[in-house]
């Protein structure tokens, strides 16, 4: 007779009495309810299990086509969406602005309509202008996911950041999150502020005044604290998120010198020790190591930066699952 050790099964208690209604597009996190974000998390938990299988593929989106339409460079967002879609058995077409009819002068709306006519079910779009995904969402019947629009929003990055925080802290509610650096140009920061505050986190922005957008706070924006001193901001922090200094968007005049920025705003080991002992370090990538973050911190024990990338696939699988289908 053979006895096998029983693995502990979580109780199968159905939670989430409220059924979030079907969503057509994912454009930003400002219209996500707390329940809906929780629903994404729970679905991502199940997707994470799929990623741990030997065969990381389920037939859920068989016959569906996802098109990535990128007008700006990207590594992780595009590959992550492609991976997520393929794990769900969808077909993926990658389109970048260079090499497509966009170079011949085709308009945004015409390009999107063409993709729809070619059978796209979901378009993931990155564009250098804020609002571009909103524009095409109004003109096509397919689902549109914002993969980053200008300095405005990057909702899927926001959700994967929230998911990573929840995995480590158990809950986002009450967490003290410090976002450091180039907030002015950061769509990641904006989407994170919406998501984090909706989930009950305290958000502190730390940046030189020239890199903090004007008009933050109520009524147009969630309430956040701005603290220009990094040492003070980090005290008691649960999560620290240095942002990439977007050199390509710096029009000049915002920073005296890079050296001064590093001196005041770089996350290094000494500053990290001012936060809670087990504080998490997140970074949306790509990193400028040696500028907003030192290599020791970026690859140190408290860094979950690589994990963010892995979690991103599970979160995006969850979002694709929630978008596809649906006779309205």
């Amino acid at each position: 007779m053979r006895t096998t050790k029983q693995q502990e099964l979580p109780e199968a208690v159905p939670s989430l009495e409220a059924k979030p209604s079907r969503r057509r597009h994912i454009l930003d996190l400002d219209d996500f309810t707390r329940d809906e974000i929780e629903f994404v998390f729970e679905t991502a938990d199940a997707m994470k299990e799929v990623l741990e299988r030997e065969i990381k593929k389920v037939p859920t989106l068989r016959g569906k086509t996802l098109v990535t339409l990128f007008y700006e460079p990207s590594t992780r967002t595009r590959v992550s969406f492609e991976q997520a879609a393929k794990n769900l058995s969808a077909d993926v077409i990658n389109l970048s602005a260079s090499g497509s009819s966009v170079e011949k002068g085709e308009s945004l709306i015409d390009t999107a309509r063409t993709l729809q006519a070619l059978g796209a079910d979901i378009i993931v779009m990155r564009h250098y202008h804020a609002g571009a995904p909103y524009l095409i969402a109004q003109h096509v019947a397919v689902s549109v996911i914002n993969g980053g629009d200008g300095c405005h929003a990057h909702p899927t990055q926001g959700l994967l950041d929230l998911y990573t925080i929840r995995e480590h802290l158990g809950t986002i509610d009450g967490a003290k999150v410090v976002i450091i650096g180039d907030i002015l140009h950061s769509r990641v920061a904006r989407s994170n502020i919406w998501g984090l505050t909706r989930m009950g986190a305290e958000v502190i922005l730390c940046a030189p005044p020239t890199l903090v957008p004007v008009g933050l706070g109520a009524p147009a924006f969630p309430v956040v604290t701005v603290e220009p001193s990094l040492d003070r901001a980090l005290k008691g922090a649960d999560v620290i998120m240095p942002l990439r200094l977007q050199k390509e968007r710096q029009k000049g005049g915002l920073l005296p010198t890079l050296r001064e920025y590093i001196q005041f705003y770089q996350l290094d080991s000494r500053r990290l020790s001012l936060a809670k002992p087990d504080a998490l370090v997140l970074h949306p990538g790509p990193m400028n190591e040696g500028i907003e973050i030192t290599p020791e911190v970026a690859h140190g024990a408290q860094s979950v930066i690589e994990e963010q990338v892995t979690k991103g696939v599970a979160v995006r699988m969850a979002l694709l699952y929630l978008l596809v289908g649906g006779a309205e």
Partner: peptide
């Protein structure tokens, strides 16, 4: 949930929980 044949026609998606195959 991920193997259903009627996902495309459902008005909303039921929550999906992790599958646990112990051995």
């Amino acid at each position: 949930g991920l193997y259903r044949d009627d996902i495309s026609s459902m008005a909303w998606h039921p929550p999906i929980r992790p599958t646990i195959i112990p051995i």
